[in-house]
């Protein structure tokens, strides 16, 4: 690690308090010897995108002024900051269920400039996850938090030795991860057990 020098308390000895040289000098040959390619792009003209915002529509390879429009196979949600539906878009995972209702509302009602837009979408993400988990239990491949979190990698990818003896900043909040990941599953499981017991008690009466 780079040693960090401490100040002797006299500001007049430090660069920030003095005028310095107009241009810093570097030992180019030493740097080139140590670092292959040092200075190859020192001239800004050699860097991509110089000058900036150069108007050159032919550079991209596009052979259209406006692209053909992709068919819209279902009403595609879009930002109200757009003038209409752009010609090309992704078709992964159309909105569905309660989360889909929330997503469509977030897009139809709020611009990207509104926190409500993003907070509704994040809420829809959480609902989508639970809708999907519940739906998976009606399939031959229910969600499995053990395999899907990849947590078994802790055993064959040196989970302990990757952490023990290391000054990792994430150690201060590592305890939160099981709560964030497993907590909702445990709560849902406890809720299901409580509901089943309540149902059994009601039937017993």
């Amino acid at each position: 690690m780079t040693p960090i020098p401490k100040s002797d308390g006299d500001v007049s000895r430090h660069a920030a308090y003095l005028p310095g040289e107009p241009n810093r000098r570097v030992d180019r040959e030493a740097l080139r010897a140590r670092i292959p390619g040092w200075g190859a792009d020192v001239d800004p003209a050699d860097r991509p995108s110089v000058p900036r915002l150069r108007y050159d529509p032919s550079a991209s390879g596009a052979h259209w002024e406006f692209p053909e429009r992709q068919p819209e196979r279902w009403p595609r949600e879009r930002s109200i900051e757009h003038a209409g539906l752009p010609p090309v878009f992704g078709t992964s995972t159309p909105p569905r269920g309660l989360s889909g209702v929330l997503r469509r509302h977030a897009y139809a009602r709020y611009s990207e400039g509104r926190a409500a837009h993003w907070l509704l979408l994040i809420a829809a993400d959480r609902i989508d996850a639970w809708e999907s988990h519940l739906a998976s239990f009606a399939t031959l491949r229910p969600d499995n938090p053990i395999t899907e979190t990849g947590v078994l990698a802790e055993f064959d990818r040196h989970g302990l030795s990757s952490r023990i003896g290391q000054r990792r900043a994430d150690r201060s909040h590592l305890w939160l991860d099981p709560i964030v990941v497993a907590g909702p599953w445990l709560l849902a499981g406890a809720g299901a057990v409580a509901a089943a017991r309540a149902l059994r008690r009601r039937r017993a009466r």
Binding site: D56, R78, S79, V88
Partner: peptide, 28 residues
Amino acid sequence: FCGSCWFCARGLYSNCHNVNPNATAVGG
């Protein structure tokens, strides 16, 4: 990126306006 919108015509390929209905602040 489409290569032909206002932004692509100026080299801002990551800011294309023709490929992302969901947001104008980010491209596809």
